[in-house]
Amino acid sequence: MLIPCPYCGQRDVSEFTYQGDGNRTRPNPSSTDRAAWNAYVYDRTNPAGEHREIWQHSGGCRAHIVVVRNTLTHAVVASSMARARTRADRREPT
């Protein structure tokens, strides 16, 4: 399995660490909404097909990246820097 790091290019999966499902949104840390926290910690969409997930290029540039990968074929469809997404999230009013 090859993962395209936006910074380093195509690299072998063994250079990366899987950080899990990238579809989850962590509630605001001061939130006391139990249902939202439970959903964040325990519930997964687990699709058979395209899955948005977070990897870290731990054996390379160490960037965290968002990868869209097909769980049926292991083919990577898209990858981008995770920090781009974090910045976008931050701009949203809470």
Binding site: R44, N46, P47
Partner: peptide, 19 residues
């Protein structure tokens, strides 16, 4: 291993499971 997919057919799209 197909639990997520079959539950989705029943309209439940989130489960405490990853395949």
């Amino acid at each position: 291993g197909s639990t997520g997919q079959v539950m989705r057919l029943a309209g439940i799209d989130r489960m405490p499971i990853e395949s």
